[in-house]
Amino acid sequence: MALQRRNNNPRFNRQQEPEHRINDRIRVPEVRLVGDNVETGIYSIGKAREIAEGLGLDLVEISPNAAPPVCRIVEYKKFLYEKKRKEKEMKANAKQSEVKEVRFTPGTDDHDFDFKAKHAIKFLQDGNKVKAYVQFKGRAIMFKDRGELLLLKFAEKLSEYGALEGMPKMEGKRMLVMFAPKTSKKSASKEKEKEKEAK
């Protein structure tokens, strides 16, 4: 009875099942074979296993839902290690980004503008998006043009660090723009180019 309960535990079953079907576990009549040491094409499952055995490697089903399923000839342990390493890298790169807000008024002076631009650049360098907006109060809504010019000037200031996602647009009593961070590699290469030019 206790054994039956343990078998019904999905975690237990998941541990028993390998992540991919390999070698004799692949039960389809034919597969599309890909890999470094093989000629890509459709082979009978028997022929595909034979090729894998001849190379001393495993036949691994990598796209079971394709027609026919796609298999790769590879050392399975190495394949799993590489897959996990790539997933780890992708997780590290896909750091949860936030949307940081920077608020202006139509009468924002140059000192305040520069101060806010420095903060926005820091947010973008940290991988966050930036939402910049001009808040219009009361009769200030008459100065929409001024707000648009201010946001475009801000976009110019941030151009090296952030990509403008669209032109300024009105939402209620505020005009806003969004910036997405540019990749750090691009920024680094631009800085190097500037250093070379300075020399």
Rank of each mutant, 00 (worst) to 15 (best):
G41T: 01
K122Q: 14
G56H: 04
L151Q: 04
I73Y: 06
G35A: 03
G54L: 03
V60T: 03
G41A: 02
E156M: 06
A188E: 09
A48R: 02
N7G: 05
A48F: 05
G127Y: 12
G54M: 06
Y161K: 02
F179E: 03
A163Q: 11
L150P: 10
M142K: 13
K153S: 12
N128A: 06
P106C: 03
G41I: 01
R11Q: 11
L124C: 04
I73K: 02
R49P: 00
A120D: 05
D114S: 07
F115I: 04
F123Q: 08
D110K: 15
E165P: 04
T183M: 07
M178R: 09
P18I: 00
S63W: 10
H111Y: 15
K86Y: 14
T105I: 08
T183F: 09
R5A: 14
E101Y: 12
N65P: 01
M175D: 00
F143I: 00
F136S: 01
F123M: 10
A94L: 13
T183Y: 09
H111C: 06
Y161P: 00
E165S: 06
K86S: 10
E98W: 12
E30L: 03
R5T: 09
K173T: 02
V134Y: 15
L151K: 06
E87C: 02
K122L: 08
I141M: 09
R49K: 14
K157N: 07
V102L: 07
I51Y: 12
N37K: 13
V102W: 08
C71I: 01
K144R: 15
N13P: 00
L149E: 13
G107L: 08
A66R: 02
P69S: 07
Y133M: 06
E39K: 08
K88W: 09
D109T: 00
F104W: 13
P64R: 06
L151E: 02
K192D: 02
G46C: 04
L176Y: 10
A48V: 06
D145G: 10
K129F: 15
K144C: 02
I121K: 15
A140F: 10
K100Q: 11
R25V: 00
K129V: 04
A198Y: 11
A67C: 07
N65V: 03
M1D: 11
F115L: 10
R11T: 01
N7V: 06
E19P: 00
E197R: 14
G162R: 05
K95D: 09
F136M: 09
N9L: 10
Q4N: 09
G54H: 08
R6K: 12
Y76V: 00
M142C: 01
K153A: 12
H119E: 12
S189Y: 14
I51L: 12
A198M: 13
K95A: 15
D114Q: 12
V102Y: 09
V134L: 09
L59Q: 06
T40R: 13
D126I: 02
K157M: 06
N128Y: 14
M170R: 15
E156G: 13
I22K: 15
I73M: 05
R25K: 13
P69R: 00
T108A: 08
L152N: 14
S159D: 10
G162H: 04
E61A: 03
K169E: 07
R25Y: 08
G35Y: 07
G147R: 11
P10I: 05
F12S: 09
M175W: 08
E98L: 15
K95W: 11
P69Y: 10
F104Q: 05
K185A: 07
L158V: 01
